[in-house]
Amino acid sequence: MMLNIEHLSIIFHDREEPFTAVEDFNLQMDHGEIVGIVGESGSGKSMTAHAIMGLLRRYAVEVTGKAKFDGADILKMDEKELRRYQGVEMSIIFQEPMTSLDPTMRIGKQVEEALLLHTKLTKEKRRERALEAMELAELDEPEKLYDLYPHELSGGMRQRVMIASALVLSPHLLIADEPTTALDVTIQAQILKTLKEINKKEGTAIMFISHDLGVVKALCERVIVMQHGHIVEEGPVDQVFYHPQHEYTKHLIESRPTRRKLKGRKLDDE
């Protein structure tokens, strides 16, 4: 078992009433698995991912339960221990690559950043490793991109750069927090293909967070459906998708636009 999350709850204390964003979240994930977490905004799906990454350690946020990564509880680690996991054993990529990339830093340097922090590799070795990661993220002509700045790339390429820098230390787990939501549909499909390819080649487990069941279905084996901070349904993707048990899952699936014309209703129809 690579990741074992038990009874994870996230409570915010910075409002007038304590607010429970996530309650009793459980998940077991093996090496090489791809798990999707689906929910709408406010369902707590991103919050869960952030907690697992150790990104919710701040004032007025209470995280309870266990989140064990290879047996070590991430929630109990001190900052120093945690840094040995963040970006090394597990990495995260976000929806908006432009805000996670430093606009003043060349692409190559950004991809190398984690190597600089966590290894003692020489400059040449780092460059070599960065180019490999860029290739893995299916960026064409990595040598040429190495010296460019983020604004010189398209949105899809920027997301690939994020993927490359997340993968540069060959983590066991990649958390992808809506990585394709801001992208055009053709680019989205390509990025999904790349992620699948990485999973196959490197054995990287992927936790894929999305509001779009269609995207999750295309990529994941297993899916968790969240609503208002709770898991309402989970199981193999096809089972959840074609035989949803919970009302909310059914509603989510019905709401997806399909090839069906909407009929206008006159006032008295209602």
């Binding site: 709408e40 779009d212 509603h251 997806r256 636009p257 009929k263 206008g264 209703r265 006032l267």
Partner: peptide, 19 residues
Amino acid sequence: LDVTLQAQILQLLVDLKER
């Protein structure tokens, strides 16, 4: 918008168009 809201707004647009 989230997919459930998306469906609601689309339905609203179609209804308004008719009315």
